[in-house]
Amino acid sequence: MALLEVKNVSYYYQDGDNKREILKDTSAAFERGNFYTIVGESGSGKTTFLSLIGALDRPKSGEILLKGHNIYEDVKRYRQKDVGFVFQSYNLIPYMTAVENVSLALDIAHLSKKINIKGILAIVGITEDKTERVVTKLSGGEQQRVAIARAIAKSPTILLADEPTGNLDTDTSDFIVNIFNMLAHKMNMCIIMVTHNLEIAKRSDIVYRVDPKIKKLVKDNV
């Protein structure tokens, strides 16, 4: 049994009388220890797919199973413990410091306060002197690192990343991809990253592509 199974999932937007199909009867499976990327044209439904497997949105039909259980059986727990998010625009709480941002996620997940937050921040390259800074005072790359730290601090089984390198320079992007690889291969996480950058996709283990014609995820050999 795969860690995360997407079975016959469809999704559409209702725009007045028009129904705009995004995904149609698509299926996919994701395992621990792999770094997945999802590529596709703009508007093809990559981010929608990520939202669905992150339980931020519900599929119109089909189901998404974590270890055989529908993720909506206990969506709160799923969001708190099983899945971590990294967004293109970082989505940090702007009035909090790096440590507070990570700590907040742990609080929400009801996890021990003994977790070494600064250690986690160090793993993603945030130096000690920057850990107590309000995040708006950090650079874009640093903010994204904090966002990654926040996502991984609670040791989720799945890490979802939506264009995390979209606003970053090449060096920082590389660093983040390296982290993702490390998390997948060393920490046995399931990393699913949406990107339009094929170079980055090449560095992942498995690439999925959203085919705009059939509205399905298909494995791609980049």
């Binding site: 709160k76 969001r79 708190q80 998010f85 989505n91 709480i93 996620a105 929400i108």
Partner: peptide, 13 residues
């Protein structure tokens, strides 16, 4: 709104 969305994504009620 954004802060709310983020907190929800983190599993907050």
């Amino acid at each position: 709104k954004e802060e709310t969305a983020l907190l929800i994504s983190l599993g907050d009620d």
